[in-house]
Amino acid sequence: MDRRKFIREALPVLTFLGTIEVFTGYVLSGAGLKAIPGLLAVVPALISLRGNVSGSFASRLGSMAHLGIFDPEKPFKTAKEGVKAVVFMSVAFSVLAGIFASLILYGTGHDVDFVGIIFVVSMTALLSSLLLSTLSILSVSISFRRKIDPDNVVVPIISTVGDLMSVAIMAFFIWLWGVVL
């Protein structure tokens, strides 16, 4: 475990990705979360669920590529079952998180807009899981064709882009909810 090599490789990547998250924070602080009381409580669950579900999907695709069972010519066909699992788990767990958070907030005497929360989290989960699955598949097949190890690039890309994308999509659905109402 060479200390210098560890610092040289990890410090720039972590600092860069951390600073990129500033933009996620910026979008988050301008997303109009206050329009839907209680929504802020679901945000960490929504973002991290996306990371856990799509991140492990991406890392699984990377392993498939290494094992030679990911066909870069027909990437979407190879990954079909994985995409179904990602979309299902994202939507199901986001709705569960919405219900759980609403119960806690309601029980502790906070304002909760239950229908608004469920609308925003389920639509955000659906759209962001579809977009992130596509992005994962494309990044794996592109890096595979260019002979870059997908393990080194795909998961950081998915986690950083994913955070920003989920928050931006959520801001859109908060806006839409305001318009519909």
Partner: peptide, 12 residues
């Protein structure tokens, strides 16, 4: 997910 929601409650 449950742990995240607890964190979110604090954030809220």
């Amino acid at each position: 997910m449950f742990i995240e929601v607890l964190g979110g409650g604090v954030l809220n």
